[in-house]
Every structure is written in structure tokens, then in C-alpha cells.
């Protein structure tokens, strides 16, 4: 991919996805250009995390229709680790605890695996630690967390900040943040927003899934989408988030309903 501004980084067309035999995404289309921040809002169970998981390559998510083009690649053909090395990053809504796997060891293995994939030199432990220290400072995370197992015993907020710390370290091109703001205190929310804003650049794009307007006051999006029942049903500028805050999702549903209402009225 070229990574130039105003070029399509991600193009999702008519995506249909089944999970455990049930259709969750039902014709979702979305285009994200390099340099942009897109917010995705929508009711519980609408399919937001499903979208994140499909983009990251999680098994068990069956694409029955549609396409996802990332740069010049068919994203759906790549293994999760290849997607990561190509610059896709998912900050999990529920980060996983992995007992016995040391955090520092894990991060270095991840970074070096990505670098190797891209044909870059691997970092030795000195270079790696230098980088880690820089990024830790931005997120005000304690050094001590590095010596523990991955996410093990981390508080809810620490887990979320750790996701953003990983993002800062891995420097992805397309970062998908799945409710990273949920469960954060006010200070932590600012730190996370600072972390994201510091990384905004013409080569990088963000998909920010959130339920709350507050995060979008700090990370001002270029586009806001509403995802409901497996589709993007409304898109607008940052003002859309405010309207949603005021009127709730019923308002969007009302605006989208006509076709179905007619059918239902027969």
C-alpha cells in the first residue's frame, strides 16, 4: 500500500458475516482513507466488535458475501499475523489474560515478528527497551506491568491502557479501537486520547468504536457512523455524535425505517 493521504486505505463492500450460524453483519459498507479517524457508534449487539474481529482475522467469523480491500490487498485472505505485520491493529474490547507469557517477552516477540515479516532488522533488547520506555511514559503505565504475564491481574483500566501502549509500540497503519474508553477513569481517558492523537498522521487511520460522545471530544473524528443491525445506517460529521447523544438510536432507526415500514404496512 502507498499510505498517501486521501487514498483509500480500507474499502469494505457489502460485507456479510455469520457467527455461530447466525448472520451478524448484513451488507456493511465502509471506506476509510489514510489520515482519517472514523468513529463507529451503535447499539449493543449491533455487530461492532464483530467487524473488528473480522478485520483482525479471528477464526469462526464466516464471510458469506462482500469484500474487504486493505491498500491493494484482499485482507480476508491474510492470516491474523500477516494482517498485523501489514499494519492492522485491534485494541480488544476485552483484552485476554495469558498466564505464563511474560509481557515484555510477548511484546518483543510481536514487534520483531512484524519487523521480520516486513524485511526490517529485528531490535535487540536494548533498542527494544528504549522504545518501550518512551511509549510507557506517554500512557503513564507502570514499568512493573511489563514484568507480569500478559494482562494477568491488570485492572480493567490498565488492560485498556495496555492495548493503547501496544498500539503505540507496534505503530500500525490501521488501528481499530473497540470501546477502549469503556471502564476508563477521566484521567485515563485523556491519556488514551493523547496517545491516539499523538499518533494521528497522514499515513495512519483509526476506526474508533465507542458508546460515548466524551471520547470524541478528545479524539475528534472526521466521520461518524452508526452501525445498527449489521449495517452502517447513517454517516455524518462529528456533529452526528452529538445528535445521537441527544436523541438516542431510535432517532436513526426512525430515519432508516421507510422501506421496511412500507413492507411492514402491507
Amino acid at each position: 500500500m502507498t499510505g498517501k493521504e486521501n487514498e483509500n486505505m480500507l474499502k469494505i463492500e457489502n460485507l456479510h458475516v455469520r457467527v455461530a450460524g447466525k448472520e451478524i453483519l448484513k451488507g456493511l459498507s465502509l471506506e476509510v482513507k489514510a489520515g482519517e479517524v472514523h468513529a463507529i457508534m451503535g447499539p449493543n449487539g449491533a455487530g461492532k466488535s464483530t467487524l473488528g474481529n473480522v478485520l483482525a482475522g479471528r477464526e469462526g467469523y464466516e464471510v458469506t458475501q462482500g469484500s474487504v480491500v486493505y491498500g491493494d490487498k484482499n485482507l480476508l485472505e491474510l492470516e491474523p499475523e500477516e494482517r498485523a505485520a501489514e499494519g492492522v491493529f485491534l485494541a480488544f474490547q476485552y483484552p485476554v489474560e495469558i498466564p505464563g507469557v511474560n509481557n515484555t517477552y510477548f511484546l518483543r516477540a510481536a514487534l520483531n515478528a512484524q519487523r521480520k515479516h516486513r524485511g526490517e532488522a529485528e531490535l535487540d533488547s536494548m533498542q527494544f527497551l528504549k522504545r518501550v520506555r518512551e511509549k510507557l511514559a506517554v500512557l503513564h503505565l507502570k514499568d512493573e506491568l511489563l514484568h507480569r504475564a500478559v494482562n494477568e491481574g491488570f485492572s480493567g483500566g490498565e488492560k485498556k491502557r495496555n492495548e493503547i501502549f501496544q498500539m503505540a509500540l507496534l505503530e500500525p497503519k490501521l488501528a481499530i479501537l473497540d470501546e477502549t474508553d469503556s471502564g476508563l477513569d477521566i484521567d485515563a481517558l485523556k491519556m488514551v486520547a493523547d496517545g491516539v492523537n499523538a499518533m494521528r498522521s497522514p499515513e495512519r487511520a483509526f476506526l474508533v468504536v465507542t458508546h460515548y460522545q466524551r471520547l470524541l471530544d478528545y479524539i475528534v473524528p472526521d466521520v461518524v457512523h452508526v452501525l445498527a443491525d449489521g449495517r452502517i445506517v447513517e454517516s455524518g460529521d462529528a456533529g452526528l455524535a452529538h445528535k445521537l447523544e441527544e436523541h438516542g438510536y431510535a432517532w436513526v432507526a426512525g430515519r432508516q425505517a421507510p422501506a421496511e415500514a412500507v413492507a411492514g404496512g402491507v
Partner: peptide
């Protein structure tokens, strides 16, 4: 999946899990 989503190849990730176990 968490390990792989960070770029760690499947075979390496599986070995890491065994070692941890």
C-alpha cells in the same frame, strides 16, 4: 488469537502457550 493479532506467527504462538503452560 490475541498473540497472532499482534503479529506472532501461529506456530510461535502455540509454542509460547505450551511453554507458559
Amino acid at each position: 488469537f490475541y498473540l497472532r493479532s499482534r503479529g506472532i506467527p501461529l506456530a510461535v504462538a502455540r509454542r509460547m502457550m505450551v511453554t507458559a503452560f
